[in-house]
Design a protein around this nucleic acid. Sequence first.
DNA 1: CGAAACATCCGCCACT
DNA 2: GTAGTGGCGGATGTTT
Length: 334
Amino acid sequence: MPARKATTIAVLICQNAPLFETSIPIGIFAVDRSAAGVPRFEVLPFRVGQDRQPLRTSAGLTIETPHGIEALERAGTVIVPTWSDPNLAPDPELLNGLRAAGAAGARIVGLCLGSFVLAAAGLLDGRRATTHWLCTAAMAERYPRIQVLSDVLYVEDGPVLTSAGSAAGIDACLQLIRRDHGAGVAGTVARRMVVPPHRAGGQAQYVATALETESISGQQGSPVLEAAAWVLTQLHNPCRVDDLAARAHLSRRSFDRDFRKLTGTSPLTWLNHQRVLRAQQLLENSALSVDAVARAVGFGNAVTLRQHFRSQIGVAPQAYRAAFQTTADSLPAQ
DNA sequence: CGAAACATCCGCCACT
DNA sequence: GTAGTGGCGGATGTTT
């Protein structure tokens, strides 16, 4: 079997698909931005079945598709950018292809209603996932083994990533780049596309909730989200969950319960996640020592940072810095 | 690495 | 009866 590279990306083009969602991964990965330091991706738009007629998309536009299902045999990343109808059962050939690619180590991505295709393939069983908010209830009902989150832009759980409706697919694709090539490269792509580089608050294998400080500051929103936004401005102090609960004027039990309901994670897991995320930024953009980074993001010492960094990112902080530190323009910590 | 101290968090249940 | 709250306990996770 040929080696699968994460930069080889198969994108499903399906009959009657909305054009916008279909085009998202193409617009992000199929444009050569190597002059700006972005890796080249090999994009394989593919279709299922023997028919080679052009596919119809929304507004009657048609698309020619160069590849068939065999694209799944060598892609390191497979993206199902959308699906025409959540009630339409996908072709077994497609489901088998996705399962085989997943079993062979490919990362599988479902954007918008594309999540339903991953769900039908069983790839989301026992995992957290999301889809367009109009359809989260339907997904949760039809697939009880999936933990469907409705308040996130995207969710990464192990080797699968799903995104919420339409434009959240952009955030999810940027997350793929951020994970493989660092926040700097993802930021470059985002700037070229004139979209926010990091609309979501988290990354790595847990939940990335839409906890942007500015979007939830002010008095509206739940006390849980306000406490979460507050702690992000205080990330350098060690802070216990009890402090967050007090800040939210909730009992500890209610805080824990509300937090999980809202974000799909526990408070400490989320907080450690945010700390690692900030540490990634500091490792990339500052010259602070690993110990100083640890303290700056609220871990007591470097040992604790290393533990969490390794378990979330998969490499040690120093190794991450060596791979992703930006060259000339080191910025001070904010 | 290991060990000990400490914190988290979720099922359970009583209570409003 | 249903819905929400919060204390308790202890398995599990975190920090030192």
